[in-house]
Structures are given as C-alpha cells and as structure tokens.
C-alpha cells in the first residue's frame, strides 16, 4: 500500500510552465464565460425593458403574469430579501475582522523592532544580530500587498451597497406574497384580444428561441469549466527531448485544441442572440402598435417591467454578495497564516534577544 510521496514531484521548469499554462487557461475560460454571462444579462435587460414575456401572458390585465409569478417564486426560494439583507449586514464585519488580523500582525513586528532598536542603542556594537527592520522587510511587503487587496475590496463593497440601495425596494415588492404583489400592480382593462394574431405567435416563438440559446449556454459553460488536460506529461517530454520547454508554443497549441471549438460555439451563441433579439425588437414594435395604449395599460406595463428587472438585479446582487463573502473568508485564512508567520518570527527573535542579553550581562 505504498504511495510514493514524490510521485507528483516535477522539475522546477515543468512546475513553472504549468503555472503559466494554468493562468493562460484561466484567462481563456474567464473570458468565454464572461462573454456568455454578459450576453445573457443583456438579453434579460432587453426583454425586461420590452416587458416580455409578461406582455404576452397579461390577458386579463389584473392578474399577475405567469413569468412574473415564476420570477417572484424563484427569488423567494433563493432566500428572498432576508438572505441579501443578512449578507449585506455581514460584509462590514468580515472586512473589519480581516483588518484587525492584518493590523495586529504588523503591530507585533513594529513592537519587536522597537525593542531591538532600543537594545542596539544601549549596547551599540556588542548587539550583534541582524536588525529587525531588515528581517521584517518581506513580511511587511506581504502585509502591504494584503492591504492593497483589502482597499480594492472596500471599493467593491461600495458598488454592492449602491446596487442594494437602488434595487432593494423593487426586490422587496417582488418577494411579497402573491396577493400583495398583485395588489401592487396597477390593473388595466383587458388588452384587446391579440391572442390569435400572427405577431403574438411570432414573438412567442422568438422568446422560445432566446430561452433555448440561454439554456445551451449553461451547458456550454459547464463543458468549458470541466475541460481538463494534463499538461505535465507534455512539458516533461519536451524537457526530456529538447532540454528546455518552449512553454508558449506548447500551451498555445494545446489550449487551441481544447478551447478552439468552444470559442466558436460561444461566438455562434452571441451571434444568434443578436439576431433573435433584433427580430424580437421588430416584432415587439408591431405588437405594441396593435395594442391599445392608455394610461392604465402603460402604468401596468411600467410596473411589470420593473418587477422583471428586479429579478435580474436580485440574481446579480446575491451573486455579488456571495462572491464578497467568499472573498473575505478566503482572505481570513490567508491572513491567519500571515499572522502565524509574524508571531513565529517575533517569538524566535525574543528568545534570541533574551539569550544575547544574558551573554552581555555575564561578560
């Protein structure tokens, strides 16, 4: 049952090539997924602004359109208002906890350095050891890097708080029970029965198409994320054959093999969305001219649009909040390691200092 502890060990050149390869891969994966998510957000925004699909479902003019009901249930099911209220309340505490660990770690370095300097002044040449200031430079650089990251995180928190402030009210409305939600939507006398009309069925088909494109993207995103290829053996062979690794050439070729196909599919997905959205906007033009527009209908439509958009804001906001929470928790782990490094070295310095003092007092 012997497992070779050194099984994964590879020459440093291979390890470094792997690091560069992985960051190239991450860049491609993030770009592809980012493009698709951005396109989906755009599509959601366009549909919400056209009050689609709600406008097609809104027959009676006084009951909640099916798509709005589904959106309401979806976010209630994901935790609704309480979950984002809680996450937004926790953010400052998470930030503060990280700051305290960082400040405390740097404080003990400063404190030890101060005593080292005092003793150096007192004993002059006889205080034979490296100055704490030199010794702590790398740790202080690392501390500085963490502070920069924390400052950027604070900016992100501000963005999240602003989004929360802007959208909380509508999200709260969308989270209300059906009766209250329905009461909040201005009613309008029933739209002229457009059901049979050609443009409604065209719009319905187009909406089905855009949904299909979005569903395909979810699968594509999973495929892209799960694509794996063990480059280690490729780099090892290259090193063995040529004595060196042309990382860029090998990586670029391999990455193209793995992600070339996906890149095409993503571009195709963006292209078909653009086409479908164009058609939707044209058909919607026709659809809205046919419907009688009056104050009540317009008011109702405005509210339905806001409710549809509130769902998208909720999805975005809760993903931002989860990302922030994960960020701060991961940073805390890094900071605890950093704090250990600082307290270990300070402890060692104190032990060394006491011994040196003892020798000096004896001699």
């Amino acid at each position: 049952k012997f497992t070779d502890l050194f099984e994964k060990m590879v020459p440093l050149a291979v390890q470094q090539s792997m690091t560069v390869y992985n960051s190239r891969k991450a860049e491609i994966v993030n770009r592809l997924i980012g493009q698709m998510r951005e396109a989906t957000n755009l599509s959601n925004g366009v549909l919400a602004s056209l009050n689609l699909p709600a406008a097609l479902e809104d027959l009676s003019g006084d009951s909640i359109p099916q798509s709005i009901l589904e959106k309401s249930r979806a976010i209630i099911q994901q935790g609704g208002l309480q979950s984002i209220d809680q996450l937004i309340k926790d953010l400052p505490e998470l930030l503060q906890r990280n700051r305290e660990i960082l400040d405390e770690s740097l404080r003990i370095l400063d404190e030890e350095e101060a005593t080292d300097n005092d003793l150096r002044n007192k004993f002059g040449q006889r205080w034979q050891r490296t100055a704490s200031n030199d010794l702590y430079k790398p740790l202080r650089t690392e501390g500085g890097n963490v502070r920069n990251v924390l400052d950027k995180a604070v900016q992100a928190d501000i963005v999240v708080k602003q989004r929360y402030g802007t959208h909380r009210e509508m999200i709260a409305l969308l989270c209300k029970p059906e009766a209250e939600l329905n009461a909040a939507i201005p009613s309008a006398n029933p739209a002229k029965t457009l059901q049979g009309s050609e443009v409604v069925s065209v719009l319905r088909a187009l909406l089905a198409n855009i949904n299909k494109v979005k569903m395909e993207r979810e699968k594509l995103e999973n495929d892209i994320k799960s694509a794996q290829f063990d480059m280690t053996s490729k780099f090892l062979t290259a090193l063995a054959q040529d004595g060196a690794i042309n990382e860029e050439a090998i990586s670029v070729t391999e990455l193209d093999n793995i992600y070339g196909g996906y890149t095409q599919k993503v571009l195709q997905s963006l292209k078909s969305q653009e086409e479908i959205l164009g058609n939707i906007q044209n058909s919607h033009q026709e659809f809205s001219t046919m419907r009688q527009s009056n104050a009540d209908a317009n008011q109702r439509e405005e509210m339905l649009k806001k409710l549809a958009a509130a769902h998208d804001s909720y999805v975005e906001l809760s993903s931002n909040l989860k990302e922030g929470t994960k960020f701060y928790n991961e940073l805390t782990e890094i900071l605890l390691k950093f704090q250990n490094k600082c307290s270990d070295i300070v402890f060692a310095r104190k032990t060394e200092r006491d011994e040196l003092l003892k020798d000096l007092q004896q001699s």
């Binding site: 470094q16 690091t19 690392e142 890097n145 963490v146 990251v149 950027k152 995180a153 992100a156 963005v159 999240v160 931002n320 990302e323 922030g324 960020f327 991961e330 940073l331 890094i334």
Partner: peptide, 16 residues
C-alpha cells in the same frame, strides 16, 4: 468579477 483575485497572495515562497 467585482472582488480582486487572491491568487497572487496565495503564491507560496517557492514560486517567488
């Protein structure tokens, strides 16, 4: 993503 990446902070001494 909104929040900065922690990758650089995670890089251990060996890689520097």
């Amino acid at each position: 993503s909104l929040y900065p990446s922690l990758e650089d902070l995670k890089v251990d001494k060996v890689m520097k």
